[in-house]
Design a binder for these strands. Sequence first.
RNA 1: GCCGGAGUGGCGGAAUUGGCAGACGCGAUGGACUCAAAAUCCAUUGUCCUUUGGGCGUGCGGGUUCGAGUCCCGCCUCCGGCACCA
Length: 797
Amino acid sequence: MAYDYQTIEAKWQKRWAEDHTFEVEEDPTRPKFYNVCMYPYPSGDIHMGHVRNYTYGDLLTRYKTMRGFNVLSPMGWDSFGLPAENAAIKTGVHPRIFTENQISRMRDQIKRLGAVYDWRREVAVHRPDYYRWNQWLFLELYDRGLAYKKNAPVNWCPKDQTVLANEQVVDGLCERCDTPVIKRDLDQWFFKITDYAQQLLDDLDGLEWPERVVTMQRNWIGRSEGCQFTMQVADTEFSFEVYTTRPDTAFGMTFAVLAPEHPLVEQLIAGGEVESEARAYIERARNASEIERLADGDKTGVFTGFEAINPVNGRRVPIYIADYVLMGYGTGAIMAVPGQDQRDWDFARKYGIDIIRTVQPPDGWEGDAYTGDGPAINSEFLDGLEMVEAKARIIEWFEERGIGKGTVNFRLRDWLISRQRYWGTPIPMVTCSDCGLVPVPREELPVIHPDVEDYAPEGRSPLAGVDEFVNVDCPKCGGPAQRETDTMDTFVDSSWYFLRYADASNETEAFDPDKARYWMPLDQYIGGIEHAVLHLLYARFITKFLHDMDMVDVVEPFAKLFTQGMIVLAGGKMSKSKGNVVAPDEFFESHGADALRLYHLFIGPPTDGAVWNDNGVDGTFRFLDRVWRMATGEFAETTERDETGADREVLADAHRTLQKVTSDIERFTFNTAVAALMEYSNALSAYLREGGRTETLRECVRLILLMLSPMAPHLAHELWERGGYDGMLAEQAWPDWDPDLVRRDSVTMVVQVNGKVRDRVGVSADISEAEAEALARSLEKVRPWLEGVTVRKVIAR
RNA sequence: GCCGGAGUGGCGGAAUUGGCAGACGCGAUGGACUCAAAAUCCAUUGUCCUUUGGGCGUGCGGGUUCGAGUCCCGCCUCCGGCACCA
């Protein structure tokens, strides 16, 4: 009987579903294992990135189950977002219909991969029973001052007439039409993630995460220690605060800079000589795209006509307006020290401003600004001090006089969650002319999207065009009020979905705290590296918030993170627009899901990216077919030959393979686990070629099937059943290897002279060192190399 | 510019603690089977030489060591992330 993967795969997928094999309940008597693959956007078709992701996740679900864990592996849909809305703009089909359709197609494909989930817990964030809890979460944050509205510059595409999320701006261009993106000021909702900046930084230390993801988050949070101090504007009553990480260089300040958006700017220029020039500059800075502003790094600015007084030495320095200073970081104003900062150097050079070095550069220094360490110079009481001491000394000096203090700054900004979009969670707020911002009462949730005629955004959410949605009675005073028409960033949805899995049909709470307590944290989270900062940071923030609300025990949601590399096709990352997508469906037909899964495991280290190669699936298919033929007796006739040596050896090899596969799965090197199984199948087929014993073959096959069960589950289950082994394979325990069998009686001793291999000889494993040395010295191939004195060690492996 | 990662056959990759470099697979070549093909099976497959053996070989240049793909110093190249963050 040939290996009929199509029939077998359909049969077992049905069986696992009907038997509820992978549905689990909370069970305090067993160790739990909460295993989650990042939920996908329902694009309609799974691609090779999904296949890789779910193959790893499914392997773990099945393996950990065999190891006796109570394994929860759920699946859901990140089903709000742009593609459905774009499709609606194009075709007029409601995003909900489009999305549900995509979900059911994609769910079918995931099932055809043989990946098993507890589907009772499925979540889809676009459904009101899910997103009402986004609205609840928003209100909880609002009540605690962690959700607030303010006017802020946002990314704006002048061609599409729409706001873009940061992640939709690629190298300063609109992702959809490649138009340079500019900033526009709009009233926006923010979540105050910056309140948690220090905790988000500190708690990274306890996570079993890839180092590079931790590093990226650390950089993103961007803690810096410095000093904030006040500067007087000469001959006025105005003053402003500056922030610097190099207060030790304050004696080198030769000018000061205000960001164009700095509130003091208006007061300084109003009615002055430079007013028109300054206004023109500010206007240009506001409208310029990121690309224009950074064009060839050229620094531009306008002199305000005012001077500031450097508090450390009383020197008067000119105040400029320049767009290389950002309003969003620090105080939006800087002391400029060209001797120690390259940007200040460039600006000073261009505008003919003095440069004073306050740190002695090393001998032979020919560069511009010197930003390194060295003794302070030209700095009065700091002279001779190294950077660290000089910093401490000057901060002390500022603090003694009450004009400055040591401070900490973060690069992390508050999370802008407003989107002028239809297909997202409506923000549950209304604005009343009398009461101002008023939350929608919780009992009125969910605020549901009304249907609209036109989904095209025109600088405001399509919801703003639906009068009966917008105009409501104020929940507080009953007077006329308007609903918020923006929707939430879809990253809000994904920042807590893993809690909803604990009880996805809960109608009274976002999630059941007791069930969540049992399952949290995730023991394994698997996904793409592209989420290293956004999703993985937001989810940490929301978890910490829920912890502070006493709804969650843990402070970190994802104990262990695995980020898989990206699958590429020769010629770059797979994407529909490039037309280089390899569809998994074709392989379900041509090679079967098991061969496809196995190739994904085999293609290379899971952390690395990989280049897709169709022929690779031929290889894993051939391997599975060979296993099939050996297990079904089609490969070779077995005899009752009882040759103890060969029998014991092939069995011992099976146990050694088991040892290797087990440790490879534990350390996430699935490629070598598959290689070990292939190597073993070669050894077994060599054994069978000579005519092996039936019982030996049967035991070897039993072990192979147990090992293959998490990797190629359909084939393994079918052969298990046909072989008449007990029960369903998925419910068997992962086997233990026999230490006696694994131990080798004889080993190959490699003899090296001066690090070069000169001979190999088979010896007994318990050979003494002296014997080994004597033997090695006596070897014909070794003797000629031993002319002089030798220092040597015996290695026996 | 800063941070992180990686360079090994024709290709994907292996070598887990400094100890047989190239496991396993793909591709290729030759053979068996076949009227033929496919499938399958067997063999070979880093490179060079004076081939029962030996030299060279893990991006480049040094170093440590009996011994280095692995450790140290200095470079080069590629990939990813952040980027006028004071």
